[in-house]
Design a protein around this nucleic acid. Structure first.
Length: 258
DNA sequence: ATGGTAGGGGGCCTA
């Protein structure tokens, strides 16, 4: 089975592209971030028409996450146990593929400017996610946590570390929150399957960043031990960034043995 | 050179 994550930067502005890319990547489950639409305004009809089941946690203008699945979605939850959050940044559901897997889709706060209130919120949110992961590890069901972590794991995951290690996405304390998550016993799919330096999932719209390959790797798939045992590969669908009216992020797809 | 671009919503904020 293939599980993908993609920050679409507005589902409404991107719908034709999203449908085209969903066809191209052949995933069974897709976590989407930055829908930028309310739950009721999600384009259910157009996406369900292509065979997807949709679980959506939207809000007006900002944030918004969804899980799409070719298999039935069950037991949808839109909150982490440890955080009452006004922002729509979290969604969790069980997919039957055919064995049940718990899938969490996350949109971790950007955190800029750092230091400041926004960065404090990022750290608070990351702490709640760590607690959520710990809770899921204690439960019996295998799981993955996919999404836009807004974290550049290491200096090799951006084009110029000196440009990023003082940014909220690359600060040592940000990288520490991501390491703590992994140290609970989660496997980062890219690290386990590929691990090459300078492979990116986001390029800014500004200053010709994509053309210069000035990117960062901030979209990640983390797997529990049992799912890590089934992990077969990771792909970054870079082609999506070269399309007309692209998102600034591209899909990341992890393949697991059935 | 502290800009640049994109999206949403409503006259700036987030990224």
């Amino acid at each position: 089975m293939r599980i993908a994550t993609w920050n679409v930067n507005s589902i409404k502005a991107r719908l034709p592209t999203v449908l085209e890319v969903l066809d191209a990547i052949s995933a069974d489950v897709v976590c989407l971030q930055e829908l930028k639409c309310e739950t009721d305004a999600f384009p259910y009809l157009e996406i369900e028409e292509k065979g997807w089941n949709c679980a959506v946690h939207g809000q007006k203008a900002y944030n918004g996450v969804a899980i799409l699945s070719k298999f039935p979605l069950e037991d949808v939850s839109k909150e982490m146990a440890a955080l009452k959050d006004d922002a729509a940044r979290y969604i969790e559901a069980t997919v039957m593929c055919p064995r049940p897997v718990r899938v969490a889709g996350v949109y971790v706060p950007n955190g800029n400017p750092a230091p400041g209130e926004k960065y404090d919120y990022k750290l608070e949110w990351s702490e709640a996610l760590e607690q959520q992961a710990a809770h899921m590890l204690r439960a019996e069901q295998p799981f993955v946590i996919c999404g836009d972590y807004n974290c550049i794991p290491g200096p090799e995951d951006c084009w110029d570390d000196s440009a990023w290690n003082t940014d909220a996405l690359g600060l040592p304390e940000t990288r520490a929150t991501f390491r703590r998550l992994k140290h609970l016993g989660l496997t980062e799919a890219f690290e386990a399957c590929d691990g090459r330096a300078h492979q990116y999932t986001f390029w800014d719209y500004q200053a010709g960043a994509f053309q210069k390959d000035h990117g960062i790797r901030i979209d990640h798939v983390l797997a529990c031990p049992r799912m890590a045992d089934r992990l077969q590969g990771i792909e970054i669908y870079r082609e999506a960034r070269a399309l007309e009216k692209p998102s600034d992020h591209v899909p990341v797809i992890a393949t697991f043995a059935d």
